[in-house]
Design a protein around this nucleic acid. Structure first.
Lengths: 168, 168
DNA sequence: ACAGCCATGTAACTTGTTACATGATTTT
DNA sequence: AAAATCATGTAACAAGTTACATGGCTGT
């Protein structure tokens, strides 16, 4: 969603080199968002091009150290304060369902079943993950997981409701 | 999220020309997702390049008529049946909040307040919209809106919970 | 005549993403 | 020595998005 801004966040914390950012990112998202290493470098190139980060020097092992610029900080604050919108179609499933309606899709029930299946899997996975969040530095992640689990609960109920409605 | 597939859906229904697709799209999403006319044409070019649509002829007013190919239909069915994933970071706000945590953002409360504000606005807007969905052909949209409203309710409550938690 | 919508398109750019290449260092 | 991980990068593409140009048609 915004690899770019997450890298800015990590660099803001302290100057880092490319690989360190990859590791930092994965820690931050608890491996829930796999990131191709290459993407770190392409994104860093673009950040540097836009003067949001700089590379004033290297570390002892000659790895390029990225630091955030003042423009970079501004961009980061701006992004953080910008509310996210597009309530209805933020969730792609709504959009898919609308398209299915448009084409009078005959397989809506299977579609819903598939969606529910992955959501139930996610529910279990995130529940597991939440259990592991016991230290204070995991407090935020735990809050997010709680939010996500509430979402999933609601979604699954809504999908059940949809099925009832489809059969009527 | 997938303009491409929505255009396929509209073309599947019946052959259409570019502008008709723009109008169709906007009707479909009830204007909730503004679409630049140009995007229709760039997307159509790419669909044609990938042999998902064809332009076998023109209509009376010499407008290119797009029709869906069998490959296009397959692609559409595939997309419809593919469940959407990435539960946690599907919602960009979660990700933002994580980044805010990473940088020890001091303005979390404002961030949350801003987010809540737009969500409340959305809530009102979508509630209005839902009231207008009275005809049978609006049945699906009404269901989506109900889902989205449940989501918004849950989100707003969660945001309130976050604020409490931040102050503790 | 003029405003406004109908209609089509292009050039340029952003972000995300992958596949692949390459070599160093560390662990087993 | 072989395997794994550390580490950096490039080329290419997908999808979204915008600004802009252009001209026709329609109603007032």
């Amino acid at each position: 969603m915004s690899v770019k801004h997450s890298l800015l966040s990590l660099i803001y914390e302290k100057p880092r080199h490319g690989y360190e950012l990859k590791i930092g990112f994965e820690q931050m998202v608890q491996g829930l968002w796999p990131l191709n290493a290459g993407q770190v470098y392409t994104t860093l190139d673009r950040l540097e091009r836009d003067h949001l980060v700089e590379t004033p020097g290297h570390d002892k092992k000659d790895r390029k150290l990225y630091t955030i610029t003042s423009a970079g900080k501004e961009e980061l604050w701006k992004w953080l304060n910008q509310p996210v919108g597009r309530s209805l179609f933020k969730d792609e499933f709504y959009f898919k369902f609308l398209c299915a309606d448009q084409v009078s899709y005959e397989n809506k029930e299977e579609m819903i079943r598939n969606q529910k299946e992955t959501m139930v899997k996610d529910l279990l996975h995130l529940t597991q993950l939440k259990k592991q969040m016991m230290t204070p530095e995991n407090r935020t992640m735990k809050l997010l997981l709680e939010g996500a689990l509430l979402h999933l609960d609601a979604d699954i109920k809504w999908l059940d409701m949809l099925v009832d409605n489809e059969m009527a």
